[in-house]
Amino acid sequence: MRNKLHKRRDFIERSTLSALAFLKDATFAEEYANCKGFLQSLDPRFKTITFLLFLITAVSLKSAVLIGSLYGVCLTLALLSSIPVAHFLTRTLLFIPLFSLTIVLPTLFSVVTPGEPVWSFHCLGIHGVITRPGLDGALLFVVRIATSVSLIVLLSITTRHSELLKVLRVFGIPQIFVLTVSMCYRYLFLFATMVENIFTAVKSRVGILSHRQHGQQVVAWNIANTWNRTTQMSEEVYMAMLSRGYTGEPRLLSEFQATPKDWVWLVCAVILCAGLFYKGYTL
């Protein structure tokens, strides 16, 4: 019975948690973006360009040591930007890199990656051999993914999300697309709150007595209902835009201003990446 109840409760709580996780992540990001720190003081355009440069470097390098040094730079930047290291490590290492580590585990063994043996063992009658190419490949894969994820998370939590979306203009992305992305982001908060409210209401009405099939219908009905609200809302939003002077040509407010510090940071980042590429090339 207990098991049954647990199963029935799952989808409601998981949906609520998904919505809450979104709101929590966005709130945390804004909180850190408003702190005083090195990365927060940079112009978002320069910061985004340099982080993309770091990311391309991390994805392109073929040495785990060099990518690891970039990860070290990332951690140092997090420290200089008043980001609690424990929170940062939990956020960046627990999900994707850990998942990637699980995926890559079989490649450690000679059955998948033949080569020079590093360590062999007997377990439950199975003879396992870990090979050098397997170990190197797995290390490179996981370090690269951990570094890439850390760089993007660091960028997103030290920059106000609205500013980060505006930076898309720097890359020549049409203004209408940037406007759509910005508007979409704002409505996500409303929808996430809506999802949370829906499932709190569902829980308060059906409690834990919902059957799986009934649960599927509840979810589908709520998605359909969310869609209906979406269409109604778009009409209201358009009227609100018109009343504020929207003429069909979007204009985004607030311009970025670069300081000498941003240029110095850009030069340093370029030198660092060029140095890593050079080192990688000569290895």
Binding site: K7, R8, D10, F11, R14, S15, S18, A19, F22, I176, L179, T180, V181, M183, C184, Y185, Y187, L188, L190, F191, A192, M194, V195, R212, G215, Q216, V219, N222, I223, T226, W227, T230, T231, M233, S234, V237, Y238, M241, G248, P250
Partner: peptide
């Protein structure tokens, strides 16, 4: 032009679908 917000809200809808967990 009237449907620009519709596209944005439609995008938000496609994001939000992933928040609905199905048993």
């Amino acid at each position: 032009v009237r449907q620009v917000p519709f596209l944005a809200i439609g995008a938000a809808f496609s994001f939000v679908i992933m928040m609905f967990n199905v048993p």
